[in-house]
Amino acid sequence: MAAGNATSVIAARSLVKTYVVGDYQVKALRGVNLDVPSGEFLAVTGPSGSGKSTFMHIVGCLDRPTSGQYFLDGQDVSRMSKNELAAVRNKKIGFVFQGFNLLSRTSALDNVELPLLYGGSTLKTSERHKLAKDMLAAVGLGDRFSHHPNQLSGGQQQRVAIARALVNNPSILLADEPTGNLDSRTSIDVMGLFQRLNIERGITVVLITHEHDIAEYGTRIVSFRDGVVVTDRPVTSRRTAADELANLPDTAEAV
C-alpha cells in the first residue's frame, strides 16, 4: 500500500469526481491533492458549488471518487465496496451534521449508542451504556443522558451528536457546518468543544464551513473553488473559544 505520508490521516491523490446529469458531465472535483496530518484541525471553506461538499462525502467514505486515490489512515478506501465503506465509516469516521440528525423520541444515551450497534460490535449492553455515558460526560452532558432531543437546546443536541460521532473512537471527526443552526454564542461553545477534544484527545478534526470566522478556530484553512484547492494556509491568529467565552458578558446561559 503506497500510502502518502506515514503520519497523514487523510491523503488525497488527484481526486476527481464527475457526475453525469442527463447529457452533461459535471466535474465536481478536478484533481484534489491534500494531506492532513494526525491531530490537525482543518477548516475547509469555499462557496457553494466549489466542490467542498463532494470532497467531504469522499473523505467521509459516503461516496467514491471517479478517479484518484484516497488513503484513510494509510488504507486505500477509494475502491472499496459499499459494505466495506460502511464498516470504515463506522470505525474511523465520526459525523457531525448541521441539523444534528438525532433520532427523535429517543434518549440521548440511545442516540450516542447508535454507532455501537453496527459494524459487528460484540459489546454487551452494559459496556455500551458505559461507553455512551462516558462520552456524554466528555461533552458536558453527564447529567442528561435520559433526555430526548426535544427536551434539549440546540447546543445540547449538537453535543449529543458530537458524543455519538466520537463513541467509536474514530480517526477523524468530520463536521459539516456544525454551527449552521446555532446562535453565535452557542457556536463559540461548540467550537470550544471541538478545540478541547482536538487538544485533549488528539482527534483530527475536519470542519466544513462557509463562515470565515468559524474557520479561524482551526489550525489550517483550505479553500475550494471550481473543484480544486485554491488556497491552503495555516491560521496565523487562531481564535480560542475558551478565552472568548470567558470574555463574553455573562448573559443568561444559552446552552
Partner: peptide, 16 residues
Amino acid sequence: TREIGLRMAIGARGRD
C-alpha cells in the same frame, strides 16, 4: 429517510 441516511453514515450496511 434522514434516519436511514444517518444510520448508514454511522456504519449501517444496506443489509442492516
